[in-house]
C-alpha cells in the first residue's frame, strides 16, 4: 500500500480536482472537447516519459524543446516536399535520437554535467532554428493530418499510442534488464559499475531514448494541425520535468515510476483548462503551476520512503 503512496496521492488530488469540476463546471467532461484535449497532450506525455527515464538515471535534459522544434520543422519540410509520412516518422525518430546522442556523448562520454550540456544544446538549437526558419510556418499536404484517418479516429489513435507507450515503458522499466540498469545507475553509479553495469553506456542510452521520443512526439504533434509552427516545443522541458517530479520521480535519481509520471502529467495538464472552465483569470496560471511543483517536492520530502540522498 505505502509502496504506491505517491501514485495514490497524485491520483487522489486528481480525483478531487475532477469531482470539483464535475460539480462546478460539468461541461468539462463533454466528450468531444475532452477527447481533443487528451489527444493534444499525448506529445507532452511522450516527452515526459523520456524525461522521467533520464531523471531516474540521475541526469536531466533541458534541450527537449529544441529537439522537438528542430525535428518538427525538419519533418514538416520533408512532408511538404511529398516525402510520405511512413518514411518521415522513422526519420524524425532517428533525427531526435541523433541529437540525443550528441547530448549523451557529451554527458556520458566526456563526463560533463547534463544540466549545463543540455542548457547549451537548448540555446544552440533554438537559435539555429530561428536562423533557419525565421518564424515561417510550414504547410503540410493533405492526408498528413490525423494520419489521414479523420479527426475522431486520429485522436483515438494518438491516445492509444500514448497509452501503449506508457504501458510498454512502465513494464520495460521494471522487467527488462536495461530498465533495471537505469534504476541501478541512478541510485548509485559506483555500485552499479561494481555490479557489472556500464554506467556510461546506460546514461548514453537514456539520452538517445529521450531524443528519439522527442522526435516521435514532434510527429505526434504535427499530425494534429495542417501547419507546423517552428516555435513548437518552447517551454516543453519545464512541463516534462514538472510532470516527472509531480509523478514522484526523484531528481536525485534512482526512484520513480512511469505510471506516476502519467498521473503527474494528467494532473498538470488538467490545471490549465480547469482554470479556464472555472473562470479564473489567466494572470494566476504561472503562479499556480509553480506552487503545485513546489507542493509536489515538499510532499515528496514527507513521504514515507523519501530517502532521497
Amino acid at each position: 500500500m505505502s509502496r504506491y503512496f505517491r501514485e495514490l496521492s497524485v491520483a487522489a488530488v486528481l480525483a478531487l480536482m475532477l469531482s470539483a469540476l464535475a460539480v462546478f463546471a460539468p461541461s468539462f467532461f463533454s466528450p468531444a472537447p475532452l477527447l481533443s484535449r487528451l489527444a493534444s497532450e499525448v506529445p507532452a506525455l511522450v516527452v515526459a516519459l523520456g524525461m522521467a527515464v533520464v531523471m531516474i538515471g540521475r541526469q536531466i535534459d533541458i534541450s527537449v524543446g529544441s529537439i522537438f522544434g528542430l525535428t518538427a520543422v525538419l519533418s514538416g519540410t520533408l512532408l511538404a516536399n511529398q516525402v510520405p509520412l511512413p518514411l518521415v516518422l522513422p526519420l524524425a525518430i532517428l533525427t531526435g535520437a541523433l541529437f540525443g546522442g550528441i547530448n549523451g556523448w557529451l554527458v556520458a562520454g566526456l563526463g560533463l554535467p547534463s544540466i549545463v550540456v543540455t542548457l547549451a544544446t537548448l540555446v544552440t538549437g533554438r537559435e539555429l532554428l530561428s536562423l533557419w526558419q525565421q518564424g515561417r510556418f510550414i504547410s503540410l499536404p493533405e492526408g498528413v493530418q490525423w494520419f489521414g484517418l479523420g479527426q475522431t479516429t486520429g485522436q483515438w489513435t494518438l491516445i492509444a499510442v500514448g497509452l501503449l507507450l506508457v504501458t510498454l515503458m512502465a513494464w520495460a522499466s521494471r522487467n527488462l534488464a536495461a530498465g533495471r540498469f537505469i534504476y541501478a545507475v541512478g541510485s548509485d553509479p559506483e555500485a552499479a559499475r561494481l555490479a557489472g553495469v556500464r554506467p556510461g553506456a546506460v546514461t548514453f542510452g537514456t539520452f538517445v531514448l529521450m531524443g528519439a521520443l522527442a522526435g516521435f512526439a514532434a510527429v505526434l504533434n504535427l499530425v494534429q494541425s495542417p501547419q507546423v509552427d517552428p516555435k513548437a516545443g518552447g517551454g516543453l522541458e519545464l512541463k516534462a520535468i514538472a510532470a516527472a517530479v509531480i509523478g514522484g520521480v526523484a531528481v536525485t535519481g534512482g526512484r520513480g515510476r512511469l505510471w506516476g509520471v502519467f498521473l503527474g502529467l494528467l494532473l498538470l495538464t488538467t490545471i490549465n483548462p480547469a482554470l479556464t472552465y472555472l473562470r479564473v483569470e489567466a494572470y494566476w496560471e504561472k503562479a499556480i503551476q509553480g506552487t503545485v511543483i513546489l507542493l509536489a517536492v515538499v510532499a515528496d520530502r514527507f513521504q514515507g520512503n523519501g530517502g532521497a540522498k
Binding site: A25, F28, S225, D229, G234, N272, P273
Partner: peptide, 22 residues
C-alpha cells in the same frame, strides 16, 4: 476571457479548444 498563447500556434489551438468547451 483573455488567454495567452506564448506566441505559439499549438498553444493557441489548445487554449481555444478549452474556451470553446468552457
Amino acid at each position: 476571457d483573455t488567454k495567452p498563447c506564448d506566441d505559439q500556434k499549438d498553444k493557441a489551438q489548445q487554449e481555444t479548444a478549452n474556451l470553446l468547451g468552457a
